[in-house]
Nucleic acid binder design. Structure first.
Length: 467
RNA sequence: GGAGAGGUGGCCGAGUCGGCUUAAGGCGCUCGCCUGCUAAGCGAGUGUAGGGUGUAAAGCUCUACCGAGGGUUCGAAUCCCUCCCUCUCCGCCA
């Protein structure tokens, strides 16, 4: 197996106080390029300056066409301007005190005041110059992807993902298993034409046992994560502002995947990851409180731009779907261990429902922009005779923490450090129902309800045709 | 939607004819002293980020930050404008 082996890791970004995108206010404060080794931040912008070659190499590895030398230029310019403007500001502060003293003594200060006019104008100029440079540097850094962990297989696409393990076995049928849309429509519990009438394509009307199962699955998953896996349940807003989307990495690069509310700077959440991770934006957490583990149910809204004609049948790919998400904030040194654990938490849901699945580690070519390592859980769908993604579990190292300025203190008086963030679906509810319909279908067209779900469905054991 | 009041350091809370506030004071916290123990008392310290200077840590030094952004001014927590958020009353609504 081939592994990416960056001797040094990555390039990240951060930002500062100026607005690079109209209507979008950035909340990050640090302006530094840094490198991470063994999950620990060891170097910063100074390193990028002194070892620019290595930085360039890293960008190349991730197939980024960003030019690392631009960092040098911009940083040099920025520090030049800062040095000059800060000297002037120091002078201004000093002279202002003198003016104050003169005024107190009822003496004439007009000479000093006249002199400071020019200084003040120059400061104004330089401040603008510094802001421009900061903005350019930040825009650059916001487009730098996270760097894959050493254990991530190098590859160009989905085809290079590597199976890590699988659980269970596919159910055996003495008839030809059907797709979930056939099963659902025959039972009268999935209604596609009416959903298209109400809204449009990629929406589904659930009825009877389907809508109840959706609700049951949400409760089952939340209960599992809160009572067995140690997560705290939260129910966040289903819309977020642009700052939050910037914090988790959906913006500025992936705005076309989002539904934005007309006349508002609000977006429908594409995943609970956004509101939940941003719970602690701009906060310094107590080291003793880590790891912090949240689980949340939210609907998810995705424009699915660029997926036209893909998965058009059934409820696999919808503009709106329900998901239960797990989010963790951890110390840097344990984040990849936590990823293993979080992945097991997602797997526990599938195991509880008796669904056959496999775990894939995504290759460098298939993983997301913000992720350092991602496991996908793929559930077996007999109707389509294939494995389909039902959960995606990622460690983001401090990529999101830098953007969202989420830090922690190891102890009293210790310097704040960035936390690591993780999240994973636990699980995508709609696809879980798809899996149940297809895996538990019977020759007579009915569907057996998995035992774990029955308590949540009033003891219902079998779904029979509605009405 | 209408009317009004506010947003200050981890917390509470002063601070409007702009300049002795380098953000008073208190609480909390840390360290020390004192004290059978505890409590109380006494003393010192206590933010974040960036630049410069140190091999590094420390230290020293400069700059910025009183909801956010912009403006006026030699100088803004303090004045003006825009926006965000919180609270009160009215209206409407689940």
């Amino acid at each position: 197996m081939i592994f990416a082996a960056p001797s040094i890791a990555p390039v990240r970004f951060a930002c500062s106080p100026v607005d690079p995108h109209p209507g979008i206010v950035l909340v990050c404060h640090r302006l530094s390029l840094y490198l991470v080794k063994d999950g620990k931040t060891v170097l910063d912008l100074k390193f990028a300056r002194d070892h620019n070659d290595q930085v360039r190499q890293m960008l190349q590895n991730r197939r980024s066409d960003l030019d690392a030398t631009q960092i040098l230029t911009l940083d040099e310019r920025r520090r030049q301007v800062l040095a000059e403007v800060e000297t002037l500001k120091a002078q201004r502060n000093r002279v202002n005190q003198e003016i104050t003293d003169l005024k107190k003594a009822k003496a004439d200060a007009s000479a000093l005041i006249g002199q400071m006019k020019a200084v003040s104008d120059r400061i104004k100029e330089l401040d603008q110059e510094a802001a421009k440079t900061d903005q350019a540097l930040r825009e650059f850094m916001l487009l730098v992807p996270n760097v894959p962990h050493e254990s991530v297989p190098v590859g160009l696409s989905e085809a290079d993902n590597v199976e890590v393990r699988r659980w269970g076995s596919p159910p055996v049928f003495d008839f030809t298993p059907r797709d979930h849309w056939d099963i659902g429509e025959a039972l009268g519990i999935l209604d596609f034409p009416r959903a298209a009438k109400i809204t449009g394509s990629r929406f589904t009307l659930l009825k009877g046992a389907a809508s109840r199962m959706e609700r049951a699955l949400i409760n089952y998953m939340l209960d599992l994560h809160t009572t067995r896996h140690g997560y705290t349940e939260v129910l966040p807003p289903f819309m977020t502002n642009a700052d939050s989307l910037m914090g988790t990495g959906q913006l500025p690069k992936f705005g076309e995947d989002l539904f934005k509310l007309e006349g508002w700077n609000y977006y429908l959440v594409p995943t609970a990851e956004v509101p939940v991770t941003n719970i602690h934006r701009d906060e310094i957490l107590a080291g003793d409180d880590l790891p912090i583990q949240y689980t949340a149910y939210t609907p998810c809204f995705r424009a699915e731009a660029g997926s036209h004609g893909k998965d058009v049948r059934g409820i696999i790919r919808q503009h709106q779907f329900d998901k239960v998400e797990m989010v963790q904030f951890t110390r840097p040194e344990v984040s990849f261990d936590q990823l293993e654990q979080l992945t097991r938490h997602a797997e526990a849901v599938l195991q509880g429902l008796g669904l056959h699945y496999r775990v894939m580690v995504l290759s460098t070519g298939d993983m997301g922009f913000s992720s350092a390592k991602t496991y996908d859980l793929e559930v077996w769908l007999p109707g389509q005779e294939t494995f389909r993604e039902i959960s995606s579990c990622s460690c983001f190292t401090d990529f999101q923490a830098r953007r969202a300025n989420i830090r922690f203190r190891r102890g009293q008086g210790a310097k704040p450090e960035f936390v690591h963030t993780l999240n994973g679906s636990g699980l995508a509810v709609g696809r879980t129902m798809v899996a149940i319909l297809e895996n538990y279908q019977q020759a007579d067209g009915t569907v057996v309800v998995p035992e774990a779900l029955r308590p949540y469905m009033g003891g219902l054991e079998r779904i029979t045709p509605l009405r």
